[in-house]
Amino acid sequence: MTDMTERKTMSPYRPTGLRRRAATLGLAALLAAVAAAPAASATPAPTAVLATSPTHPDHAVGTRLGDVRVLAHFDRAAGQVAESIALEPGGGVVIGMIHARQVVRVAQDGAVQVLATMPLPPGGGTTTPVVGTPGVTGVARSDSGVVYFLYSSGQGGLTGIWQVRRSGEPRLVVPLPADSFPNALVIDGKRDRFLVTDSTGGRIWQAPLRGGEASVWSADPALAPNGFFGANGMKIHDGAVWAGNSDQGTIVRIPVTKDGGSGRATVRATQLEGIDDFDFTGRGTEILAAINQASKLVRVSTNGAQETLLNAEGGMQGTTAVAVQGNRAYVTNGANLAGNDPTLMLAKLRRR
């Protein structure tokens, strides 16, 4: 683990329990809220719980990992805290780098190319919600190859969805409110729209893929934060939007209605405090979850049972994202809460 001074310098974006969050971020007001705050894994009352996370998972079945290796190392001193993954054909990936405010491409051979770098906002972005530091978070790639990313700056006119242009000059496509913290970005190709989680606002935004004004798609209580970050990672799967809630330690499923609206959220997994991102393995609703706080990659079975597949001994350091492509799983480590070696790792999926 990094010491307290280093954590303050890096302004980590992930929950570590209310008391540690307060110390890490210098938010003294959070300390006063500890006694009154509900447990971080509590589920909002209006939300139905369809699955829990049994203590003893079934190890006889489920996806395993093999041939785990580091594909690329990043420069933590330069702020390259790897945060998110967008898959490209041929085995390359696009990654958002938080503190460097960059979007980079990692080729199949591990070569790293910077695609875009966002400027510091006037004043340095100290008004960025909760964290006080601007950063690039979620990334997405359209079917036509256009790369989009999220920038959270605490200022209007900069916070929102941006497009990477061939010139390297990014273009603002969808502005978002200055008090929001856009975190995960997904393209809903069926409805030609973006979906964006707002971690501090506890909601999911939607906006036309062509660009324009954003509106709230869901503000279900299951997305709400509990002192730090609520809705974080997000995927579209089986007619629904799935989102992880870092503070609540849950994965929730929100059905998409016939008109594209949002239904009522149901909790599909619990006891995942500090969850950042996740992806489906291809076995129904089996999930690989990146747990930033605990530096581990967890398999969540279809019934909610959990099993740790990789931990610190396996190279996890502040695990931030996971993306599955065929029989491969890409995993990013931001090294923002533990360690000093942010990486992109690659593993083969062995389904049984």
Rank of each mutant, 00 (worst) to 15 (best):
A42S: 14
T43N: 04
T43S: 06
T43K: 10
T43W: 00
P44N: 11
P44K: 12
A45P: 09
P46H: 11
P46V: 10
P46M: 12
T47I: 12
T47W: 08
A48L: 09
A48W: 03
A48P: 00
A48Q: 13
V49H: 06
V49K: 09
V49I: 14
L50F: 05
A51R: 15
A51F: 15
T52N: 15
S53F: 14
S53V: 12
S53W: 11
S53M: 12
T55I: 15
T55R: 14
H56T: 15
A60G: 13
V61T: 15
G62E: 04
T63E: 06
R64F: 09
R64P: 07
G66S: 14
G66I: 05
D67K: 11
D67C: 04
V68A: 03
V68H: 04
V68G: 00
R69T: 13
R69I: 07
V70F: 00
V70A: 00
L71R: 07
H73W: 00
H73G: 00
D75C: 00
D75V: 00
D75N: 07
A77C: 02
A77M: 09
A78I: 05
A78P: 01
G79I: 06
G79W: 08
Q80F: 01
Q80P: 01
V81G: 00
V81K: 03
A82Q: 05
E83K: 09
E83I: 10
S84R: 14
S84I: 04
A86Q: 08
A86W: 04
L87H: 05
E88G: 14
E88N: 07
E88T: 11
G90Y: 02
G92P: 00
V93Y: 02
V93A: 04
V93F: 06
V93C: 01
V94G: 05
V94R: 10
I95S: 03
I95W: 00
G96M: 07
M97F: 08
M97Q: 14
H99E: 13
R101Y: 03
Q102P: 01
V103K: 10
V103T: 14
V103A: 12
V104M: 11
V104G: 01
V106I: 14
A107Q: 14
A107N: 02
Q108Y: 06
D109C: 07
A111F: 01
A111Q: 12
V112W: 00
Q113S: 13
V114E: 12
V114I: 13
L115N: 05
T117Y: 01
T117K: 07
T117D: 01
M118D: 04
P119N: 10
L120H: 03
L120I: 03
P121E: 08
P122W: 11
P122N: 12
P122G: 13
G123S: 08
G123K: 11
G124K: 09
G124F: 06
G125L: 06
G125P: 06
G125R: 07
G125S: 08
T126N: 06
T126G: 04
T126L: 09
T128R: 04
V130L: 13
V131K: 03
V131Q: 04
T133Q: 15
P134F: 04
G135R: 11
G135L: 08
G135Q: 10
G135C: 05
T137F: 09
G138Y: 09
G138R: 10
V139F: 07
V139A: 07
S142H: 02
S142D: 15
D143R: 08
G145D: 08
